[in-house]
Computed example of a mutant assay.
Amino acid sequence: MTLLAIDHVQLAMPAGRESDARAFYAGILGLTEVAKPEDLARRGGCWFESAAVKVHLGVDPDFHAAAKAHPAFLVDDVKRLEMAAAQAGYRTAADAPLEGYERIHVYDPFGNRIELMQKVTP
Rank of each mutant, 00 (worst) to 15 (best):
N112M: 05
P109C: 04
R43F: 15
L74M: 06
E99N: 08
D76T: 14
D20V: 05
F73C: 00
G30V: 09
V9M: 02
D60K: 05
G58H: 03
V106T: 11
A41Q: 15
Q10A: 13
E102L: 13
D20H: 08
K36I: 01
A94S: 15
W47Y: 11
A84L: 14
R80G: 09
G44H: 07
V55E: 01
I104W: 01
M13C: 11
V9P: 00
I114G: 02
D20S: 14
A69S: 10
Y107R: 05
K54M: 08
R80T: 09
P37N: 02
Q118R: 14
V34A: 11
M13T: 03
A26T: 11
Q118L: 11
E33N: 14
F73N: 00
Q87Y: 08
K68P: 02
E38P: 09
F73P: 00
T92S: 05
K119S: 08
A66N: 05
A23F: 02
R91V: 01
R22D: 15
A52F: 09
A94T: 11
E115P: 03
H8V: 06
L81V: 07
R22K: 12
V9L: 01
A26Q: 13
A23T: 07
Y101V: 04
P97T: 02
H70F: 00
H105D: 00
I28K: 03
D95C: 09
L74V: 04
P122A: 12
V120T: 15
A26H: 11
F63W: 09
D62Q: 15
E82H: 07
A35H: 08
E82Q: 11
V55F: 01
A67F: 03
A84K: 09
T32V: 15
T121N: 13
F63T: 06
A12G: 14
A35D: 12
Q87F: 11
L11C: 06
D62I: 03
M1T: 15
V120Q: 10
I104G: 00
E18Q: 15
E82M: 07
A86P: 03
R17Q: 15
Q87A: 15
M83I: 11
P97M: 04
G89R: 08
A12W: 03
V78A: 06
A96S: 10
K119N: 08
K79E: 10
Q87H: 12
H105A: 03
G16I: 07
D60H: 08
F24R: 04
D60R: 04
F24E: 09
